[in-house]
Design a protein around this nucleic acid. Sequence first.
DNA 1: CGTGTTTGACCTGCGC
DNA 2: GCGCAGGTCAAACACG
Length: 490
Amino acid sequence: MPNSNSTAAAEETKVESFGCQEGHSEEENYELVNAKAEMNEVRKENARLKKTLEHMMKDYQSLQSRFFDILKQESHSKKATMSASTSHIKIEEAHDQLLSLCLGRSPRDPKNISDESRLVQVDHHQDLKANLTLELGSKLQLPTELVLSGPIPENSSEEPKEAEASPSSTKTPRTIGSEDDEASQQANAAKRARVSVRARCDTPTMNDGCQWRKYGQKIAKGNPCPRAYYRCTVAPACPVRKQVQRCVDDMSILITTYEGTHNHPLPMTATSIASTTSAAASMLLSGSSTSQLPGLGSSFGLFDNSRQQQLYLSKFSSSPLLPTVTLDLTSSPSPSSTQYRTFRPSVSFCSSESNINLPTSWGNGYPKFGTPFDRKNQECFQPNHQPSSQVSLTETLTKAITSDPNFKSVIAVALSSMVGGGAASYGSQGVGERLGQHLTQNAKGSASSIFNSLSSSGSQKGNLTLLQPPLPFPESKSTSSSPAIRDKSL
DNA sequence: CGTGTTTGACCTGCGC
DNA sequence: GCGCAGGTCAAACACG
C-alpha cells in the first residue's frame, strides 16, 4: 500500500529529525506536506472504494431484480402447466414443487417474494396433492411419503390435512398465516436436514463465524466424548443449532452438525460455512427424492481422492429421521478406487417400501471441490470468540466454492432450489440429469450468473447476500425469547 | 451485574 | 407400559 510506504517514510524522517535536532519549522513543513499527501491518497483510496461499493451494489440489485423476474416467470409458467396437464412429467414437476416447499431451510423469505407468487405456490401444492394421490397406486410413492409422513408436520404439507379438519380454512393459503404459523414453520423447516462437518480440530469447537451459546451437553451412547449442544445467538429467535462431538475413532476429528437456517444476516465470517451447509443440505434434500430400501446407508457420494475431501449423505445414527449431509474435511485417506465414486440415491429416513433406483450421473465429471484441508492452517476457537483471526475452515469452504466451477455449479443448483421454489428439486429423475437441465434453464440464468459474477469479483460478501439472502430480524415471529418453545411450555 | 457455561432433571420418541 | 437414548430446560455457578 502506498499509504504505508509514505507513512513509513514520514516516520523515518521524524526519527532522523529527532536525532539531528535540526530546525523545527522546516521539519514541520515537511511533515505537513507528507501528511497532506497521505490524506490525499487516503481520500483517493476512499473514493475508489466507494465506487467499487456502488458498483457492487448495482450489480447486486440488477441480479436480484433479474432473479425475482425469473422466479415470477417460472411460477406463472408452472401454474399453467400444472392446471392443464396430468402427464407423468408434470407430476414429476409437481413433486419438485412439493419437495422444494419442504427444504430444510427458509430459502424464500416471505417478505422477499410477492404474495402472488406465494399464492401460486400454494395452488401448486393443492394441485400437486391431487396428482400425488392419483399416483399413490404406482411406484412413484416416495416423494409423497417424504413429505406427508415426515416426522414433523411441515406447514405446506400439513395444509391439506388441516383443511380437512377445518373446512372453513379450506381455501385459505396458510403462507399468509399467523405469526405462530410462521414461527412453527420455521422451526419445522429447521429440523428438515442437517449438515455435518468433520474437521480436524484440537479445540472444543470450530469457529464458524457465528455466535453460539451452549445449552446442553450429553454423553451419547457409543461415544465417551460428550456431545455439546449450541444455539445460535446472533439473533434471538434464530432456529439454528449445532451439535459438536469428537469422533469416537479419531479424537482429533471434530464433528459439527448444523441444523436449521439462520433467519438473520450472517457475519461475514459465517457466510461461507453457512452457505456451504445450506447448499449441502439442499443437495441432500434435492437428491433425496429417489429412494432405495431403507437402511442402506449412504446415499449419493462425492469422493475426490486427489483432494481427500468427501461430501456424502449419511445416515445419522442419532436421528435417523433427519437426513444428514456430511462434509468431510479431514485429511484421512479416502478409499482407493476410481477417482469419483458414485452412489445411488437412497434416503434412509424414508420408510417407503418403494424401491426406485434411478440412474444417476453424479460421478460423471462431478465436483472436484475444495482445497486440501491443511491441518497446519486450521484454526479452531472456543465458541463466541470473535474471529479476529479468520477461520481456515471458512476459508477452505470459500475456496471450495469459488475455485472450482463444478462445485460452484452444484451450489448454484442448490441455490436455485433454495430460492426458486419449484425450480430445483430433483424429483425422481437422476440428479445429475436434472442438474444439467437446470443449468440450461433457469438456474443457469440466475444462479450460475450469480456465481460467475461472484467468482469474478471474488467477493465473499456476495456469497452472503446471494446464497443466504439477508433476512430481517424476526420482529413478531415469536413472542417468546426462546426459539424452541415446546409443547409443555404452552 | 450481565453473560455464558455447567449439569441434573425433565420431556419425547422409539423399540421391545 | 416400560426402559432407553437423544434432546432441551433452567437453576446454579463462574467469570470478566
